[in-house]
Design a protein around this nucleic acid. Structure first.
Lengths: 347, 347
DNA sequence: TTGAAAGCGCTAACAG
DNA sequence: CTGTTAGCGCTTTCAA
């Protein structure tokens, strides 16, 4: 045991050039490498004295077993690659929490990659995934990135699964039910001129997102015309939401409610509205999507369609396990996450 | 290239039992495994025709190179283990962003582990670190976990470095300067009865944290007595901050300012104060620590000591690189992060 | 352009 | 209790 201030951390361990191998230790101690292996791995069939001598020598020499050599021989450790767009968007940490927990539960390791939803970056990350992990759990926007991963035979679970990759297993969010709940809530409150702030990236890459499609559908069902100016694209950030809200109010100052692509955008939009003198929810109501914790902290607290993001991550890992599990055993059906309306002060 | 809906993802790749090796592919195609290796690795010395046949066969058979075998032979890929307390506390994602970026820059892989600052969990995670990564970058509260890692010869960088591990390299946050700035700001505003809400876990494990020590010191320098009831412990969460604030106001309703361990706690405390009818900052001012984005979104926006968390993560990876770098090359000195006062509406 | 041999660092299986 | 013999799956010589 090392005591700081008395004994220093073995600086030999910080070398990089000559890797200390089990053979070096064996030679130094004068035993076979098998014996060293036994000592290192806490096997029982070994003389306590020998064992101690080996451990001491190993530590002194700065020996650390090679994880590659070990992995090669005991085909155990599974690594899952988690691909998210951005750690800073609070949505992803929650999913990550679920993934980490489920992975730990199975003794899996999680390597994290971020893409910022950038096309080139997604393709690069998929390459890494193919090389470095056993199974991927990924938010991937770009069709060709998905195709590339699947084509390379990488087992993976798609986390933002829409209609674009029917053959790839994933977790599906029930936008139909979610958005419908939210809009009906707004309609019940008497709103008729309901705008939508959409994510510009998703829009430009994948096409109209499911939220928007359901929005248009529900409005049509009620016989409510949707004014073209009601739909504003936004960058996926608080500032993006604020800008879109500014544009919306300039174009259509008479909207009474805003349905946003997600909570981050909704928070930005709501702030900007307040800055411009609107009273929320009286002058304009706001509905978010995702159910982020931060939505409870803003003023007024945000009404939102809450989805269990942590569960989303857990389910993804379960699906991944199925994928890796049996021979030919296809993941039968996508798991589904259903959003739940949480009414707070913003509506 | 696979087209979804037309060709299905090769289900053979989802098998787990018989790993398809390079030899299987070689035999199937009728070439040596070196030739397969050449095809897979895009080497130039290979006949385009052979190459294509091999690639096709490999794909059809669901062949994926073993990363262990590869790693063993080309000693390249470095894996850094990032240990954080909790993905859900917004402080950590920001650090993580920095680590991910710096790691990507170097072509390193990042495996993420969480501990919840739990003692047993920290020890377990250190075990995993020792087995699974080349270098650790870690928030570790418990001295024995730090000692264990260092003792095992694992190169690592301590992220919440206080005075407890002088021999372990790390990044140091300049609490002295930070807290002083913050308190002087409060004193300038005329506050004299300044309470502090401290983190109970840190307190119970490591002892009084540097923030508190500087707080006591500055107050003493000004000749301002610190009432015992002014210091309240809190769990590290919004709710924890709220509870502590409740206790504080019950015990000492006459405090005029609160300095919190971090922004998360400050936000909770501020909310509770507002719920109890206090007007912020008139009746009570709030000062946080960390400079989280969410602090800008609450009402009133939180005055805080901002630290560049992303930079913290980047620096840690740079330090890690030094550690791995030269022989005997010790990381000369801890890098230092200096907090910066950001004045907003809460003071 | 291709193949054969050697070995990366380790552990499992069997002797002794 | 300890050593020897075989690989794990791949790439890197070196020949052909």
């Amino acid at each position: 045991m090392i005591v700081f201030g008395t004994v220093t951390v073995p600086s030999v361990s910080t070398n990089s050039k000559p890797r200390v191998t089990i053979d070096h230790v064996a030679r130094a101690v004068g035993v076979s490498r098998q014996t060293v292996s036994r000592a290192i791995n806490n096997k029982s069939e070994i003389d306590p004295g020998t064992r101690q001598r080996i451990l001491d020598a190993a530590r002194a020499m700065g020996y650390r077993p090679s994880r590659f050599a070990r992995g090669l021989v005991r085909q155990h450790l599974i690594t899952v690659g988690l691909v998210i767009a951005d750690v800073l968007n609070p949505f992803f940490p929650e999913v990550t929490a679920g993934v980490l927990e489920a992975a730990e539960h199975r003794g899996w390791q999680v390597v994290v990659y971020t893409t910022n939803s950038d096309h080139r970056k997604e393709l690069e990350v998929v390459d890494l995934l193919i090389e470095q992990v056993d199974v991927g759990v990924a938010f991937l926007l770009h069709q060709d990135a998905i195709v590339k991963a699947a084509g390379a035979g990488l087992p993976f679970i798609l986390l933002d699964k829409g209609d674009r990759a029917p053959e790839v297993p994933g977790v599906r969010i029930d936008f139909e039910s979610g958005v419908r709940q939210g809009l009906e809530h707004l309609l019940d409150r008497g709103h008729r001129r309901i705008a939508m702030i959409d994510d510009v990236t998703y829009l430009s890459v994948v096409g109209p997102d499911p939220r928007r499609e359901v929005y248009l559908k529900v409005m049509a069902e009620r016989g409510l015309p949707v004014d073209a100016g009601w739909i504003q694209p936004a960058h996926n950030s608080v500032e993006g939401g604020a800008e879109a809200m500014g544009r919306l109010l300039a174009a259509r100052p008479d909207v009474t409610a805003v349905f946003a692509y997600n909570d981050v955008i909704a928070i930005g939009a709501q702030r900007r509205a307040a800055e411009l003198g609107l009273r929320i929810p009286r002058d304009c109501a706001f509905l978010g999507f995702d159910g982020l914790t931060v939505g409870e902290l803003v003023e007024p607290p945000l009404t939102t369609l809450h989805i269990d993001k942590r569960r989303l991550g857990e389910i993804a890992v379960e699906q991944a396990a199925l994928l890796l599990g049996g021979p030919e055993e296809r993941v039968a059906e996508d798991a589904v996450i259903r959003p739940e309306l949480v009414v707070r002060g913003s509506t």
